[in-house]
């Protein structure tokens, strides 16, 4: 329950901070950090425009996408506090329920019959497919290290063994951060601020969504960031008491948002054809973590 509230709070400012950082880095003042939230509220008040070619799939897709993100959010624990949904193998459920949302956002995009949206859908499907193994190898290694198989137990037991596990946590942070960037289609995979439909991924998939539906999709995007941020926080706060862990939650989320903002300000996006290579390389970082875990557990003789 605690994690749910914290994630919801973090989601309100996360995207705002990214935008603010980018503005400051480019020498502008930028909007307030709650601007994304008021954008969404404005969208919820608006009417909708549908394309002639669409069917009910297009109308239901954003709802299912949003629901899947909420379900994924419920599995996230916070330190010693369980998530609302917690069972052995809940990280599989987490990944799969996100996949359900992705499936619907893809077919929702295909429903418009626009070739641009088809292009975005194809890329989204491909990249998320490549990101899957990295996540599963990472979670598998952490499960191996801690001897448990649910988010809550893994994170609670992660640092009980030795301090080396903090080094692993830093590597894992990199993997999770990159997965978050891929899943939310940010730099260096995708540039959310691009104005050319041909080079977009996520933005082009939602070109035809408007009003309430667009609001749901945007909110889901903010939540997604906060969810991955919470996962990263969990890598570190396993056994820290609440009075320290809650502030550090916000500190880490803030840091993540700032670093994403900085990455986006000072880095160019990859060429589209280099993206798969980059994402597969992420799997090798996960493998690195796996071998480190084997070393820690002295499985190598």
């Amino acid at each position: 329950m605690l994690s749910l509230i914290l994630i919801l709070i973090a989601a309100t400012f996360f995207s705002g901070i990214i935008i603010r950082t980018k503005s400051l880095a480019s020498g502008r003042k930028g909007p307030g950090i709650f601007q994304p939230v008021s954008d969404v509220i404005r969208l919820f008040r608006k009417g909708v425009v549908y394309s002639k070619t669409t069917s009910f799939i297009f109308r239901i897709a954003p709802t299912i996408y949003f629901a899947s993100i909420i379900m994924a959010m419920l599995t996230i624990p916070f330190g010693q506090n369980k998530g609302i949904i917690s069972f052995d193998g809940d990280f599989i459920f987490f990944a799969y329920v996100l996949a359900l949302g992705k499936f619907f956002s893809i077919i929702g995009a295909l429903d418009t019959g626009s070739s641009f949206e088809g292009m975005g859908a194809s890329r989204e499907a491909l990249y998320s497919m490549f990101a899957e193994p990295a996540f599963f190898i990472l979670m598998g290694s952490l499960a191996l290290l801690s001897g448990h198989t649910s988010f809550y137990q893994i994170f609670a037991a992660l640092h009980l063994g030795s301090q080396i596990s903090y080094a692993l946590a830093i590597l894992a942070t990199f993997v999770l951060l990159m997965i978050a960037m891929i899943e939310s289609s940010r730099m260096p995979i995708d540039d959310p601020k691009t104005h050319l439909e041909l080079t977009m991924i996520h933005e082009v998939m939602i070109l035809d969504n408007s009003g309430f539906d667009l609001g749901l999709i945007l909110t889901a995007g903010y939540l997604k960031f906060a969810i991955y941020g919470a996962l990263i926080v969990n890598l570190f706060i396993g056994s820290i008491p609440l009075q320290y862990s809650v502030p550090s939650f916000f500190a880490i989320q803030f840091l993540l948002a700032v670093s994403i903002g900085l990455i986006e300000s000072f880095m160019a996006r990859f060429r589209m054809s280099h993206n798969p290579q980059f994402i597969v390389a992420l799997t090798s970082v996960s493998l690195l973590i796996f071998f480190a875990v084997l070393l820690i557990l002295e499985k190598f003789i």
């Binding site: 919820f44 009417g47 909708v48 425009v49 549908y50 394309s51 002639k52 669409t54 418009t112 009003g211």
Partner: peptide
């Protein structure tokens, strides 16, 4: 929510 809002049908944005 959408009951009270306007709904339009138009061509896909190309």
């Amino acid at each position: 929510v959408l009951k009270q809002k306007s709904q339009q049908i138009d061509t896909t944005w190309n």
